[in-house]
Write a protein that binds this DNA or RNA. Structure first.
Lengths: 264, 264
DNA sequence: CGATAAACTGAACAGTGTTCAGAAAGCAAG
DNA sequence: CTTGCTTTCTGAACACTGTTCAGTTTATCG
């Protein structure tokens, strides 16, 4: 194989066609995300996108081979977006104790979800009837990434002793999960990790779907209370009470514009 | 079932037309629920229903004035179905301690959700883009009912001392919620109630949406562990370990046929 | 019976995702 | 430049969808 094909040096010097292709792919996803935010996953319309970008509907099939394929791209992007927010939030307390970083990561998780309600539904709520994520895709990798961020923190906390070792409970086989994430959790550690994820994810989920009426409840306070309970249970005490606020202002500076959904 | 024409003399002497109307309304909802279970909320098709019941699509508008109206009926029915399951589960331990009844209710909540995944999505995950529940409808009443069941239990537990009074935490104004439910919770009680709901609802939500891979995790064990943590936190200790199983066998006897979604 | 209201039909409208033959444009080699 | 090949794009078509509306059938009641 001596011939240097177009695709080999594509990354270095993308041809005009490839550049246009990338730009249009991005533009299609942009329009789709607007429709997603406005009308939900079911409101994403192939023909609507075509109209918006000024092409015939059939031409879109050059860029995505079906609506499902577009969904896959959007889901992957959303997972990556989420984990970017979480990472940025953790980094605010990069040199702080594990407890603060955990709280910050969770706060970022919530902030992203409230500002990307429809994307949250897209990735966490199986909103598309027939859709199934392709095996071994970027989708699952992006999914694991955001979980791994939290796992890394609790593992560090248990290692340094900043988090108390979970008390023994019913056995849950950790081997499958350890293999997937490349870790060595005990049964109790895995159980507590998943239970904790359930807890704060559940709180976020209820809030995103408007099940905690903001007329009765101050969701900010309730959420910090939930997280406080969680960190108390993990033995890292109550974190710096300003963590949530510092994370929020950082996120609003870095990704401005999109309104939160709470108290709306 | 819905109490549609329980009104006035209709129940006493339903005319033939009214009887037919009720039967067809039920039949339409039945077909819609089948479509819901098979293809999700987005897969419910007006014309498909019409085909199934052997009528022209236009004729359905005699029974429901739009798809949204049908959704409302389905949502109401689903909330009622859920609270029926929860109630039946609690009743298994009618004379038992509050802790057992709480555990049983939560187990029923989960079993219903796993067996009615699409209905769970319908009522808890805002799957229908433009849909908004009508004000003061049966929908919100049915929604409150299932929450009130759990609230009644914890209130009883605090009254009898079976549940330990929650430790003080950040203030959350309980007045709105108290008004809605006709109760007199303190800030701390309300906070703990909502946080607890978040926790087990979150666990159920993750399971229903396949985010806890049943290849790695024994979901039954994980869920009981979550509930155990919860009841430990509420001070009612670990409940009878057989509660989940007894509830499940009761539910399977009473509502047989529909498979659970776990380990699928 | 006849009058009236409810139930139902069939056609139509504007929309949807997807397919396909064929035209237009970009690009490399002769 | 021209030739040949590939990618990109169009326009029409197909089988759907929810909803509306003028008419027709059917049931109920005076």
């Amino acid at each position: 194989m001596t011939s240097v094909t177009q695709t080999d040096n594509a990354a270095a010097t993308p041809s005009r066609r490839e550049r246009l292709r990338e730009e249009l792919t991005a533009e299609i996803k942009r329009v789709a995300r607007v429709q997603l935010a406005e009308k939900g996953a079911g409101g994403i319309s192939w023909r609507g996108i075509a109209r918006e970008v000024g092409m015939s509907p059939a031409a879109l099939y050059t860029y995505f081979e079906s609506l499902d394929d577009l969904y896959t791209a959007l889901i992957t992007d959303s997972f990556n977006s989420l984990s970017t927010w979480v990472e940025a939030s953790i980094d605010v307390f990069a040199d702080g104790p594990v407890g603060d970083r955990l709280t910050a990561g969770i706060a970022g998780y919530r902030e992203w979800s409230l500002r990307h309600a429809e994307e949250f539904r897209l990735i966490f709520q199986n909103v598309i009837p027939g859709y199934e994520a392709p095996e071994n895709s970027q989708t699952v990798a992006a999914n694991l990434k955001s979980s791994a961020q939290f796992l890394a923190l609790v593992v560090e906390g248990w290692a340094t002793g900043e988090l108390t070792e979970p008390s023994p409970g019913p056995f849950v086989d950790p081997s499958g999960m350890n293999e997937k994430f490349g870790m060595e959790l005990t049964s109790d550690q895995m159980r507590v990790s998943l239970a904790s994820w359930s807890t704060f994810h559940g709180a976020v989920q209820l809030e995103v779907n408007d099940h905690i009426d903001s007329d009765w409840v101050d969701n900010d306070r309730l959420f910090t209370a939930v997280v406080d309970q969680l960190s108390f249970m993990c033995g890292c005490g109550s974190a710096d009470p300003g963590v949530h606020d510092r994370v929020r202002t950082m996120l609003e500076e870095r990704w401005p514009g999109r309104p939160r959904r709470t108290s709306q």
